[in-house]
Design a protein around this nucleic acid. Structure first.
Lengths: 231, 231
DNA sequence: CGGCCAGTTGACGTCTTTCAACTTTGGTGG
DNA sequence: CCACCAAAGTTGAAAGACGTCAACTGGCCG
């Protein structure tokens, strides 16, 4: 599976690490933990998808990340030994491996590379959050949605004849990943479909013209062919 | 100074840690490093203030964090050993201590508590970023500005007779911390000043009524005394 | 076959930004 | 010590982007 967690470990080391984990299955919709629960374990997704969300006081959700096969979550929380900073819920039937704090530290002592990997994972999540922060602060909705789609295509997309398919994701989830509403997502996707950039259906978006979408990103404002007579 | 980095260390341990650091002074406006520079060192602010920013392709800035006395930055980057994820620039004359990667690891080996502290710092920054992410996604500008002000009051504010003073910060910086524009910040502060919630001047905001501001946060919409005749 | 959930679309309002003009403040050099 | 200048801040007007609400459609599963 090429999980970044196990990158660079020997066959024996991998076996040892995997043997130390607890296995767990979740049904679609089942919660693994909630925000502010004590953080017992670091989790690796083997199969399925886990949605990590923060919920506002008013009940509006923000998706922090969608963790698919190979993804790790709750790394910092478990190292620090405090509480989880978000809810974790399966959006599909899923299989996980989980390492408790003590077990993980023990493994680190024998397999330094594992600790390196966890550090690298924490760093990459942190960079991704910085990127999203910047995007939310400075970019308009269409650009943010494009970024969300391309990010999903990168991490979870399935190559197809016509393009890259991103599926198992609703308009609402796309909105909560992009910091906008269900309605804006629907409108934008309809528009892009008319331009043949994407092809979409219930729970799925097929990216047909990646370049076209990326181009959208850099031409945000009323930049329809500008009239040069309007000095 | 009660820096979280040194929390829980004995006098001897502190001395050892501080002796291993390189000292550095920065003039106001001077850059310490730029985004994508190789991350050599973890930095602790002794005096002054360091502004950590990401710059967009279009040249718009986002402030990731303002690091004042006692604050640490670039912790993850240096542990991972890659590159800095933001620019660091002094907004005032500043004094820093910096630990190179190898030095830091060596210290960790002898003083495990130091590593714990760094982990806790990384975790708290990560939590703060999650909070800001949620706020940017779901809250309107006035609420975000209130949060920014209260956060600054918490970390950098100086208690005064009339309230808590946050100074050395421009409207533009407040805007870049809140994900809005200079103009919106100016308008909102004027309005709040008229309501006696704050008192502001060039580069300074005095928070006179913390409770009043917090109350603002939970009453977002056009909830001025609503006219009940307009069913 | 019915109901439900996901999605679509239009109308409408408003929050925010943008742009331009103007004022205030504080530091510096004469 | 004063005058001047640049930087910081204010304010109004206008446009536009997005969100909200409501009504409607279409596909899927039981």
């Amino acid at each position: 599976m090429g999980a970044p967690l196990l990158r660079g470990l020997s066959r024996e080391e991998r076996a040892r690490v995997l043997k130390a984990a607890a296995s767990r299955r979740l049904r679609s919709g089942e919660a693994l933990f909630h925000q502010d629960d004590p953080a017992n374990a670091l989790h690796l997704v083997l199969e399925g998808r886990i949605r990590l969300t923060q919920v506002t006081a008013e009940g509006r959700e923000v998706i922090v990340r969608l963790a698919g096969p190979g993804a790790v979550f709750a790394a910092i929380a478990v190292l620090e030994g405090t509480t989880y900073p978000f809810d974790a819920t399966a959006t599909q039937a899923s299989r996980l491996q989980s390492w408790e704090r003590g077990v993980l530290r023990e493994l680190f002592r024998h397999i330094p590379r594992l600790e390196q990997n966890v550090t690298a994972i924490v760093a990459s999540h942190s960079r991704e959050m910085l990127d999203r922060l910047r995007e939310l602060s400075t970019e308009p909705v269409p650009q943010r949605l494009v970024r969300t789609l391309l990010r999903l295509a990168e991490s979870d997309g399935r190559p197809q004849a016509e393009g890259v398919l991103v599926d198992g994701i609703t308009r609402l989830e796309l909105a909560e990943l992009s910091g906008t509403t269900l309605f804006s997502v629907s409108r934008l996707l309809s528009e892009w479909q008319a331009q043949r950039l994407v092809q979409c259906g219930r729970g799925r978006v097929l990216i047909r013209d990646r370049r076209g979408l990326e181009r959208l990103r850099r031409v945000p404002p009323g930049s329809a062919p500008r009239d040069p007579t309007a000095v």
